[in-house]
């Protein structure tokens, strides 16, 4: 039972992955952080921390709070910026034996286009996960909450992303996620990442102040797993199944059982985020667990699980 079992291979957009388990953006740095801890050769794919056009220092501390069943974070898109990403981070990524997606965030359509165009030129990068849904910057949700704007930014980016896979990561902090999924697909997305974190608030009642300096933060971890599953289920049925658009499902996955649930709900692959903080090797264990599930239930390949939820 290995994470490289050929039955685990899946297509995600324009790429074939070794297995359906990736790391989620913002929980695994740019690669060197987990080198020697996590065998990238056993990973389906790796999603980098967000990259913006210009370097961002990030928010004041406290940036993270533990809450029941989860983690509330407001890092504020702290990242090295495009220039330093290309100069300092790409050389290591080149050596990583896995598919690497770059999470790209921005404030204007031009920001997105500039970063995506530069990233798409780099041969070792498999594609882009477009972050239109960071809840921890003042205007970060704008593109992620308006279908018209979303289609516009995805179309603009699609025009310059000619080689790599283009995933769009959607926010669950909306009334109708299916309308945003549709807008992203119409804009030319190869796939959707579902979901980003939920906006939350933690209060220190002794001090009568918010725990996070940013006041609010994004909730991740097992607390959001059923919410994420619902979003994947809904978007798969209403938008993706007919069009053959793959979903990268994420939200609170801690083990193979959780991961299989996402595949059954309609995800083609899954990403592991908060669980990496506890055990960076979790994705490999989860991939092996999925292979065991295939054996037990008599499936010939992992793609056979997609959307097999019996209603």
């Amino acid at each position: 039972m290995t994470a490289s079992d050929p039955r685990l291979q899946v297509r995600l957009g324009r790429r074939t992955l070794r297995n359906p388990v990736l790391t989620a953006s913002g929980t695994c740095g740019y690669g060197p952080e987990y080198d020697h801890l996590l065998d990238y050769g056993q990973l389906g794919g790796f999603t980098t921390k967000s990259v913006t056009r210009h370097e961002r220092p990030g928010n004041e501390p406290q940036r993270v709070a533990e809450v029941p069943g989860g983690l509330l974070n407001a890092i504020g898109l702290a990242n090295v910026g495009l220039e330093r990403f290309l100069a300092e981070k790409v050389p290591f990524i080149e050596t990583m034996p896995t598919e690497v997606l770059v999470n790209v965030a921005g404030y204007t359509i031009e920001d997105y286009v500039v970063v995506c165009e530069a990233v798409d030129r780099v041969e070792c990068l498999a594609g882009i996960e477009l972050n239109v849904s960071c809840p921890n910057v003042s205007d970060g949700l704008m593109f992620g909450t308006d279908p018209g704007l979303l289609k516009e930014v995805v179309s603009a980016v699609r025009a310059v992303v000619t080689r790599g896979t283009l995933l769009v990561k959607l926010s669950p902090n909306v009334t109708d996620i299916a309308s945003l999924a549709r807008a992203a697909v119409e804009g030319g997305a190869d796939g959707l990442s579902l979901i980003n974190t939920y906006v939350g608030l933690s209060i220190d009642v002794e001090r009568r102040r918010p725990v996070l300096a940013n006041v609010t933060g994004g909730l991740s971890g097992p607390a959001i797993l059923p919410l994420a599953l619902y979003n994947v289920h809904r978007v798969y049925r209403e938008v993706c199944a007919d069009r053959g658009i793959p979903i990268l499902g994420m939200g609170g996955i801690q083990n193979a059982r959780d991961a299989v649930a996402f595949l059954l709900a309609g995800a083609s692959a899954v990403a592991i985020g908060t669980a990496l903080f506890v055990d960076p090797t979790a994705p490999v264990k989860i991939a092996e667990g999925i292979a065991a599930y295939l054996d037990q239930h008599g499936f010939a390949s992992v793609s056979e699980l997609r959307g097999q939820l019996q209603l």
Binding site: T27, E33, Y34, P57, G58, P61, V64, I75, F277
Partner: peptide, 29 residues
């Protein structure tokens, strides 16, 4: 002592301001 999520350099929560003369503002996290 700072709040730590991972201890492995990825959650970016345990930041401390240190002097950095090469930076415009003179410090970095």
């Amino acid at each position: 002592e700072r709040f730590m999520g991972c201890g492995l350099g990825t959650c970016l929560s345990c930041v401390v301001r240190v002097h950095a003369p090469d930076q415009e503002k003179g410090w970095r996290w």
